[in-house]
Write a protein that binds this DNA or RNA. Sequence first.
DNA 1: ACTGATAGTGTTATGTTATAACATGTTATG
DNA 2: CATAACATGTTATAACATAACACTATCAGT
Lengths: 167, 167
Amino acid sequence: MKKKREGKTTSKIFDDHDHGMCFDDAIEQIENYFLKKNLQFTPLRRKVFEILIRDHKPLGAYEILEALGRDGFSSSPPIAYRVLDFLMEHGFVHKIQGLNAFIACPNPNHSHSPAFVICRKCEKVAEVDEKKSGISFANPSIDNFEVEKTTVEMTGVCTTCSRAATI
Amino acid sequence: MKKKREGKTTSKIFDDHDHGMCFDDAIEQIENYFLKKNLQFTPLRRKVFEILIRDHKPLGAYEILEALGRDGFSSSPPIAYRVLDFLMEHGFVHKIQGLNAFIACPNPNHSHSPAFVICRKCEKVAEVDEKKSGISFANPSIDNFEVEKTTVEMTGVCTTCSRAATI
DNA sequence: ACTGATAGTGTTATGTTATAACATGTTATG
DNA sequence: CATAACATGTTATAACATAACACTATCAGT
Ligand SMILES: [Zn+2]
Ligand SMILES: [Zn+2]
Ligand SMILES: [Zn+2]
Ligand SMILES: [Zn+2]
């Protein structure tokens, strides 16, 4: 089960892939985590996570609220923000600062401070972990400073989109 | 003159330093740039830049507006956002995404995509350039993707603040 | 089962950040 | 001096986020 997840790369996200497996895998992981930690995976929390994991696109809080409303849940702002805060605390959702939007983590086993790769055309977002991205935060050059939290976001165009543009 | 600037480091920002020189140096650079590029360094633009370069702390757009109001300028939101957009285009101001705030670039000669080091205690922000920070964006591991723009923000506590806390 | 504590959800109101659209003034150029 | 461009001013509104409080569900200990 672990091996299956380790193979997930940037290209898998931007290319066509078996997203049903992404989805099922992510749901399974979050269920197991909640069970193990004795947390409630309530219908609302499940729904918010499902909305976010539907595609690899970040959604604004108000987009999530609309989706909740369509599915019969309350859609006043605090509903979304509370659930998002909760899911972020546990590493299942990340905020993309440059977009004021939220994305489901497809693999909470990763480093908890991933870098985000954001395609401005298809709007999909992939995570890459610290080591693979070549980013090292415990860096000697940033002396006189203790880093606690990092935000790394890279915006550009994925090859799937740039190939499509040249056809 | 160039050498003077190259010595600017993270520690210079967080420690006590001759900020008058920072200030004058920055103003001189922006004046020269505007002159060279035939751009208007209007009173409003100058004021906004001065407000931001007063300290190495980022300010929200509405804080800038208040300061503008106190100095007799108009203080409706578009005033600030337009000038900020303009100054950002030319690299004299950066936006700190994690704070929804704006900071004057103390050295526009740097890489145009610096990493930001943010102290959550004194709220000062330093820039470090790509190479020194150990961050390399043209990274082979982020394949299938052409990075156009990067955001790197590191939040923590500077040693000036952590020393102060243990006294 | 009762009781109180904790956690989760719902609702209203408000705060904060950012932009659209249009009017007016100012500056450079032919 | 006409006119195009750039710059600033103003009103309104959009987009993003939180405070405060009410109500409900779940759970632990009696
Ligand atoms: Zn997928
Ligand atoms: Zn794409
Ligand atoms: Zn200084
Ligand atoms: Zn500090």
